[in-house]
Design a protein around this nucleic acid. Structure first.
Lengths: 175, 175
DNA sequence: TTGCAATAGTTGCACTTGCAATCAATTCGG
DNA sequence: CCGAATTGATTGCAAGTGCAACTATTGCAA
């Protein structure tokens, strides 16, 4: 869904007829339905949020995520690698994303004086202002498109379940 | 976040300090946590599944999804537009994906004799064989990375919740 | 009929992505 | 100290993506 970007979709159902009678042994139909539901929910919500954010603030979802990481960091700065891990993107992807954010004047990149291999990505005052301008609308959109679908207690249960799934798949992006 | 493809990540927490005291009015912390959990779970699982599928079968997750749609269709074929909607990708994206699948000999594209505007994408016997080869491993991977995290009853609840979220955001991809 | 609107797909374009190779700086073993 | 291994980040490359503009075909109205 690239969000834009990355492809988001899938269907696994009804493969039994093709694969043979034991397809449900490979993937429990209950699990298949849940998996499709996850892909569908994710795809629809992110697609909508992405275009709303781009229209209102000229910022991609990935831009927002990176800037959000910096906002919550000490002195509004992070090493490139730390930032890549935090934002769940590859190192090369981050390099180029920071290039673009730097062109906007939202982030600066400076070599670390103590260790010349390290580069700090730092949110600028202009970037902070852009983020402050974008965040309320984006957060409201998340509340509307995602948050309003379930009551709070159910939302907490959803969180616990999703975190269990995430925990089962904990591997760093940048091997 | 994705599969290749799409950026998958985010953090919304801890914005109150930056946005002012009322950030939690914009987005309930409960919702924020759930949203981050969704992005994280989706990103990690799809990333892993994507590379496993590519390694084992030379097929992207998007390829698999498109072929799965054809497998479950009448006569293994679908119109381009139907297929794009079903696979949740744009029309142009599908055009090029079918190009690539056709190069592999997995799908053919033929103009419809009754309505010259329509083109049928049809899974070939070779494509069906490739799909049959890929599906067991992929389904097992879904079962392992996603399905094994929760008991069945909880999985059903998760499905219901996710479908509610999806329903709140039901809009066709191709406007 | 004829000509305009609607529909189905494809293409031009600008961008984004990740992997592998590479460059640069630091650290560590001898 | 010095060269090899390690670590941090950037770049070449080959994809993949969506939007908007375009082509082709059909339908419909006068």
């Amino acid at each position: 869904m690239a969000t834009t970007g990355k492809p988001v979709s899938a269907e696994i159902e009804a493969l039994s007829a093709v694969l043979g009678t034991d397809a449900s042994k490979l993937l429990d139909p209950t699990v298949a339905k849940a998996w499709i539901a996850l892909l569908t929910a994710y795809g629809r919500v992110t697609r909508a949020l992405s275009s709303e954010l781009m229209d209102s603030s000229g910022m991609s979802l990935a831009d927002f995520d990176v800037m959000a990481q910096l906002v919550r960091s000490e002195e509004y700065r992070l090493r490139m690698s730390e930032l890549a891990d935090a934002a769940l993107i590859s190192k090369s992807g981050l390099t180029r994303r920071i290039d673009r954010l730097a062109v906007n004047g939202w982030v600066t990149r400076r070599r670390c004086t103590e260790d010349g291999r390290v580069h700090w990505a730092t949110l600028t005052p202009l970037g902070l202002r852009a983020f402050k301008g974008a965040a309320p609308g984006h957060l409201a959109a998340v509340a509307d498109r995602f948050g309003s679908a379930l009551p709070a207690s159910e939302m907490e249960r959803l969180t616990r379940d999703l975190l269990k799934i995430a925990a089962k798949n904990a591997e760093p992006i940048n091997s």
